[in-house]
Nucleic acid binder design. Structure first.
Lengths: 91, 91
DNA sequence: TTGTTATTTAGGGAAATACCAAAATAAGTC
DNA sequence: GACTTATTTTGGTATTTCCCTAAATAACAA
């Protein structure tokens, strides 16, 4: 879970997830949305992938990134837990 | 908001918030829960405070930390938004 | 003022992170 | 094979983060 929060800590990576939530996109297509060199973005993708927040699918020469909603939802649950929102035992 | 996600990225800081959610605690009392030097914890507290995730109150010589639930809830909402959970416009 | 307790600030070193340009890899086409 | 396109890996530098010990500050008591 720490991997996930680490990944979420960078604004670029949060924006990548936001973009991927609308639809899967290739690495290059994603990179075009940022004012950063492609290797830099590639590094960010690797962090997201290590946290299992995205998955990849190769289509010929391009690589398509998909957001992994279940992990994003788990992170949200973890944070809700920390915030004491929902699912609480009234003891 | 980036300050908040940065603050949440470190496991020690998440644990501090979890402890403070039960009840406010002094810096020293918190520090005792970790196997780290007090100045190290003080640094973590400063990060949490910069993100407005905690507030402080001095009582004589001790400083009491309180979790700022509203900011924690805002962060949860932001993540829920990223995850597309709840509050969505069906368009 | 001297001393004690609680906490933070200062200073420094090691490790991690973020960025880039250049080179390498992968898949496909001619 | 030679070339093109898409992407990642490598190598390098600069900045930031994390942790420590030692010193400074704050509030209070004797």
């Amino acid at each position: 879970m720490s991997d996930v929060f680490d990944a979420l800590a960078h604004p670029v990576r949060r924006k990548v997830l936001k973009l991927l939530r609308k639809r899967p996109m290739s690495a290059g297509e994603l990179a075009d949305k940022f004012d950063l060199a492609k290797p830099t973005l590639s590094g960010h993708f690797a962090v997201l992938k290590a946290a299992d927040l995205v998955t990849t699918e190769r289509q010929g020469t391009t690589i398509i990134y998909h957001v992994n909603m279940s992990v994003l939802e788990e992170a949200t649950s973890a944070l809700m837990d920390l915030a004491g929102m929902g699912k609480e035992k009234t003891s």
